[in-house]
């Protein structure tokens, strides 16, 4: 018997709130970007999913695992829980609309991933043109974090 059992908890909003807060710290102080590659990479991954609307992370069982008796539908329903990302997606959409208006998801994601990459590698972040872009991206992640808190 396990030490503790509880209904599965969806951490997605907390995870992305933490990541968004980390990103804002990087935008406030780009020199720390090189030490924050992991949070920035995970945000870039989230944006990639947003670009392709790929939010179902239903985890398939192994090809034979699905056939074994304990996982058969002709028995208990053992389907893996699908995460509920509605709160995260809504926060992304709201931040997108608020900060970047009518630009497409494709353009938004390209822009943000480029800026995250520059922060992570501390390259080209002092150019005046980039600074305005960084400020917009910062506002995006602030709005995103706020959206997650209120979801």
């Amino acid at each position: 018997m396990a030490l503790i059992s509880m209904y599965e908890r969806d951490n997605s909003r907390t995870v992305y709130r933490i990541l968004a807060d980390q990103a804002v710290k990087c935008f406030d102080n780009p020199s720390i970007g090189a030490e924050e590659k992991i949070p920035l990479a995970n945000l870039a991954r989230l944006l990639e999913r947003y670009r392709y609307d790929a939010f179902s992370d239903h985890v398939a069982l192994g090809i034979l695992e699905a056939l074994s008796a304990k996982n058969s539908a002709l028995g208990a329903d053992s389907r893996t829980a699908v995460r509920h990302m509605e709160g995260v997606i809504s926060a992304l959409e709201a931040a997108h609309a608020r900060v970047y208006g009518g630009i497409s998801r494709e353009d938004l994601v390209r822009t943000l991933q480029d800026l995250l990459a520059r922060i992570a590698s501390s390259s080209g972040i002092d150019e005046p043109e980039t600074r305005q872009k960084l400020e917009n991206a910062r506002r995006f992640f602030v709005a995103f974090a706020e959206g997650l808190k209120s979801a």
Binding site: N11, V15, I38, N42, G62, E65, M85
Partner: peptide, 26 residues
Amino acid sequence: GLDSYKINLENDLSVLNVGRRIFTIV
């Protein structure tokens, strides 16, 4: 177990902490 062929993928949307993804082949 005969049914243990699988690839474990780090694809969970509620995971905080992945740099390079690690796939484990079983």
